[in-house]
């Protein structure tokens, strides 16, 4: 594991304990999750007890302690998307990627998630891939969308 990258993140934040959340966000951007070695390293470098870092890391849903795929695919299951067919979209994605929500594809290309409303109800059903929204989905469009990210 390349800890020099972590040191750089720490310097960017002036080794400031109060910046812990921002530091963890940068770490997650770099590694796509929060690796154990990195949390240990931050604990030693900033002199924050590991349990406190672990508390923050498990408190926010945005952080993941498990490795995640290259693309995060979140299917909206909010009320509006639900009535517009989100369960079908979810089934399609599950069958296509052959994984359950919360899991990664074996080649680590995808992580499948469900979320409850991304605030784009007007164009539901909606999928969010790496932060970008794709709306008015059908099963066909879902498969096309997932194929698009399979290669890169």
């Amino acid at each position: 594991m390349d800890l020099t990258k972590v040191d750089k993140i720490l310097t960017n934040h002036k080794n400031d304990k109060a910046m812990l959340v921002a530091i963890l966000q940068d770490v997650q951007d770099e590694f796509r999750y929060l690796p154990k070695e990195v949390l240990n390293h931050i604990s030693k470098s900033l002199n924050i007890p590991l349990p406190e870092i672990y508390d923050v890391s498990t408190f926010y849903k945005a952080f993941s302690l498990k490795p995640r795929g290259k693309h995060i695919c979140s299917i909206c299951m909010g009320t509006a998307c639900h009535v517009r067919g989100a369960p079908v979209i979810l089934e399609t994605a599950k069958t296509h990627l052959k994984i359950e929500p919360g899991q990664n594809t074996p080649n680590m290309q995808y992580t499948l998630n469900t979320v409850n409303c991304v605030g784009a109800c007007a164009v539901g059903p909606v999928i969010q891939v790496d932060g970008s929204l794709y709306g008015n989905l059908t099963s066909m469009k879902t498969i096309q969308l997932l194929k698009k990210f399979e290669k890169d």
Binding site: P49, L50, P51, E52, Y54, D55, T58, F59
Partner: peptide, 14 residues
């Protein structure tokens, strides 16, 4: 944390 001074445990999740 405050009495023993080792901070071996913490709260987790929400």
């Amino acid at each position: 944390k405050d009495i023993v001074g080792v901070s071996a445990i913490g709260l987790s999740e929400r």
